[in-house]
Design a protein around this nucleic acid. Structure first.
Lengths: 208, 208
DNA sequence: GTCTATAATTCGATAGAC
DNA sequence: GTCTATCGAATTATAGAC
């Protein structure tokens, strides 16, 4: 916009290219590394090397290592929320909604387990400001499940002793899949997701 | 035994004192720090300061920082196994055993959440050799739950689609409590443990 | 935008006096 | 066994050439 010396593109397409592509490549490398070794055990040199760049190149595209973590964490949380909302919208009654939500969560926490590990286990690496932002998204995730249980209790579909503890347990089951899941030895994500979804319904369903 | 120049103790009691006490204090400081900030984010200076010692004092009692992690991890895993075995021995039939085991696991993962976080989330900090040792203990933990489910299925107490996935889910629920539990705002450990234990039984119980 | 080189810290671990 | 002092390596991030 402000006086480029070259006309580089045929048209400014929504497809990323050039610098944006390098930026994405660094995020992808960081996501993998953070998910596998943890934020603090990953060096900026690891990230640069995985993206095929020199250590200094990282800082052209991202202000700090923590900025990379924030970008990955934010995108990860928003992706989960999008999945959950789509799942709820796609089922008619409350038991089906719960089953779909758990399925969506477990599917993402296994399929994208590296990103999911960053989302759930690398919160301490965030700055105070970024941590606050992320915690709001996490509260929304918990809120969705909690509301679902309350709705089910209200219309008689569910029988639940303590909504808070039970929703914690259901979310816990899904989140922890990102920790134990190993693609090489475990069943396919869809199979694990279906199974967990049925288990969640069994935990709260009213009758047989 | 080999020519002490001083007779320091009235008797060599099983009670720890002197150097052993300092050693324990360092382990306690490290457990808290590793559990709250993670192994890599904790410095040996943090540990020394928390124990009221100079940075160098750590190495009089522990060879390396990783040695501290291993000691904490090993003791933590063994404590969980002890809890689980006692729980199983204390209940007559299989549903009661499962309920008791989950109760014991959740109780420990909330009450001792700092230690439990080290046990479950700081495996990457271990050396290859130590990691192998620890993985054997972890396999035993999974094995106990898996055997319990198989026994319940065999005698008709439980109905389970997939024993491996279901036992993973049950253990996941217990482990993840160490991640989300906050003593300041959450219900008492015993209440959470009881609730989770009932949920686990509901996941697998045959009839109403 | 990418590189090489390096500044400025910080870390795990050790040396040596008491 | 504890301390002060410090080594040597590794880390995040920047400077400056191309």
């Amino acid at each position: 916009m402000t006086g480029e010396t070259e006309v580089t593109d045929v048209a400014t397409q929504p497809t990323e290219s050039g610098a944006d592509l390098t930026r994405s490549r660094l995020i992808e490398a960081a996501r993998k590394a953070f998910g596998e070794k943890g934020f603090h055990a990953t060096t900026t040199r690891d990230i640069a090397a995985a993206a095929g760049l020199s250590p200094a190149a990282v800082y052209v595209h991202h202000r700090t290592k923590e900025d990379l973590l924030y970008a990955i964490s934010r995108a990860g949380h928003e992706a989960i929320l999008t999945d959950m909302r789509a799942a709820i919208a796609g089922a008619p009654e409350v038991a089906g909604k719960l089953e779909a939500v758990v399925h969506a969560m477990v599917l993402r926490h296994t399929r994208e387990y590296a990103a999911a590990r960053v989302v759930n286990y690398e919160l301490d690496g965030l700055s105070a400001q970024h941590r606050e932002d992320i915690e709001k998204l996490r509260a929304q995730i918990q809120g969705i499940v909690r509301r679902l249980l309350r709705t089910g209790v209200a219309d008689g579909s569910f029988v639940v002793d303590d909504v808070r503890i039970t929703s914690n347990a259901i979310v816990a089951m899904a989140i922890d899949a990102a920790r134990w899941y190993r693609p090489a030895t475990d069943p396919a994500p869809d199979r694990i997701a279906s199974h967990h979804a049925r288990l969640a319904v069994r935990m709260v369903a009213a009758a047989g």
